[in-house]
Write a protein that binds this DNA or RNA. Structure first.
Lengths: 196, 196
DNA sequence: CGAATTTTGTAGCGTACGCTCCAAAATCGT
DNA sequence: ACGATTTTGGAGCGTACGCTACAAAATTCG
């Protein structure tokens, strides 16, 4: 047939994710990408099309490996309410442990590129909505299980939780301390605890 | 002495604010800036130094005209708790009314440029902290006035309110509807209402 | 081995970037 | 009116951008 690829596509996309995650879409050059991915510019274009397509691929990879993995793992190992708490706690831990303070690629992209590219905006919003749907599922499950007050509206609370998560991730990217991140999140968790 | 400037500096900076607000720091070119400001490139450099200095000047102008103005106006015309509610309500109204969905220049900058420029990061964080301080002042005042529960910690709640505000502004930039923005904010306002 | 096919590295396309140089135009004090 | 001083517009600096053309290298099948 023909010559084989010398690099692993997924590894390469992982490197691209790191680039976009660190510096954003516009500020990341194709040359930076190729170098960090360990491939030449021609291979990048042959394999991924163009910079924008590689970005879409990176968003998908990030969503699968970061967001969806966390949702699936926590949703099977925790009770509904604890899944929400564990999700936010885990994001805080990872935010504090990351020396580059990259925050969340989806949140960063929502501000950076989504407003000027409708299609990318829909992609990013879709991934964010998966997080909101996770919140909503678990709020509702906790409510029917009786571990959370019946008076709350699962839809509204899930939106609030998404907003709080986003705000926390923005502050994490600015270098906020643990105390700050926990203070942002705590009242939202209390919503699920205290009787209304 | 010499020839007089043909343009108004503040008007020009207002135009620069709009550019940075719309597209971010990196994605805004000096040529775009000069054109929108209605001046030549040479005048821009003569008057403002360079692109980064103009950005700092734009941040200051935005903080004065948008954030600080709103804080001062609402803090003198409303009781403490209502000042907080009015602040968030006004941000929602303006977010929905803006056809460009620019969000908040400070929040946008916190993700875009602050992580890669420590000095700009401090500037942006400082302006955001002024908002948090406004929340804190009014939470405390409402608590001593008895219009809000005594059990809450003004410092923690002010951080939570800032996080909620930021999350709401991010979602606003992605084109969220009124119902979404209000759902993000409502539980934080309820914090100040319901007895603990 | 050799033809066919794909990947790879290099070089370079046209464009836009931030920024500067410089002479012409405009305004002041005298 | 005139020299002094500042602003202005245009041309252009060097660099980096996204992307492509092209030939050499590498692989599989006959």
């Amino acid at each position: 047939m023909a010559r084989l690829k010398e690099f692993d596509e997924d590894r390469a996309v992982d490197a691209a994710v790191d680039c976009f995650w660190n510096r954003g879409y516009e500020a990341t050059s194709v040359r930076d990408l190729a170098q960090q991915m360990g491939i030449g510019g021609t291979s990048l274009y042959n394999t991924f099309g163009d910079k924008r397509a590689l970005f879409v691929r990176s968003l998908e990879r990030y969503a699968n490996r970061s967001t969806r993995e966390r949702i699936a793992r926590l949703e099977t190992s925790h009770l509904p309410k604890e899944a929400i708490r564990a999700f936010l706690a885990e994001v805080i831990e990872r935010s504090l442990k990351d020396p580059h303070r990259k925050g969340c690629l989806l949140v960063n992209s929502a501000l950076d590129v989504a407003p000027h590219d409708a299609e990318l905006g829909r992609v990013v919003s879709g991934y964010l909505d998966e997080i909101r749907a996770f919140f909503r599922r678990n709020v509702e499950a906790a409510r029917t299980a009786g571990t959370t007050p019946h008076g709350i509206d699962a839809e509204s609370v899930s939106i609030h939780l998404l907003g709080v998560l986003i705000g926390m991730r923005v502050l994490a990217r600015t270098g906020a301390k643990r105390r700050t991140l926990e203070a942002v999140v705590q009242p939202a968790l209390d919503l699920l605890e205290r009787p209304r």
